[in-house]
Amino acid sequence: MAIDQSLIGKKTEIYQYEVEKGHIRRFVEAVGDDSPLYVDEDFAVETAFNGLIAPPTFATTLTMGKESPFDGIEGFEMRRVLHGEQEYEFHRPIRPGAQYWVQSEITNVFDRKGNSGAMTFIVVETRANDIDKQPVVTCKSTIVYRQSL
């Protein structure tokens, strides 16, 4: 399977993901984000959020260490991958203790000629739904695959 438009529609199974309070804490510590909304339960419960939430970019963890739509693509090399663009649309906040059902799909592939040679742009869409099948977040990642390295 080449790294071209034949990848469009390749998707993962739906997998389960559990949000852990300690994981959020480690994440905000690494970023250096000290908002109490993410770690201070007593504070967060008194706000309009009515409890702890995760910071927006915590959504990146939804796909990490999980099945990926890039799995099993012959010749796919991580060292050729750069992150081009990222978008998160939140339908509701990510909350510790919640369980989500997640699926990623390659939704677009296109070629561009860049400064450093041929590049293929791959768009991956990831959706997370909660236990009531309500959408939580829609993630759109644009990966730059450097064909000529």
């Binding site: 690494a30 970023v31 250096g32 984000d33 908002s35 109490p36 909304l37 504070f43 967060a44 706000t47 309009a48 959020f49 910071p55 927006p56 970019t57 990146t60 750069l82 992150h83 081009g84 663009e85 990222q86 978008e87 998160y88 649309e89 939140f90 906040p93 759109k140």
Partner: peptide, 28 residues
Amino acid sequence: MLSMGFIGKYVREILAEHGDIKKISVRF
């Protein structure tokens, strides 16, 4: 994603607990 995390932190500091982040999109 770390630099996007800085943006999340920035916007959250401006909003504090008075608002919700609905959508965030960036180019690296």
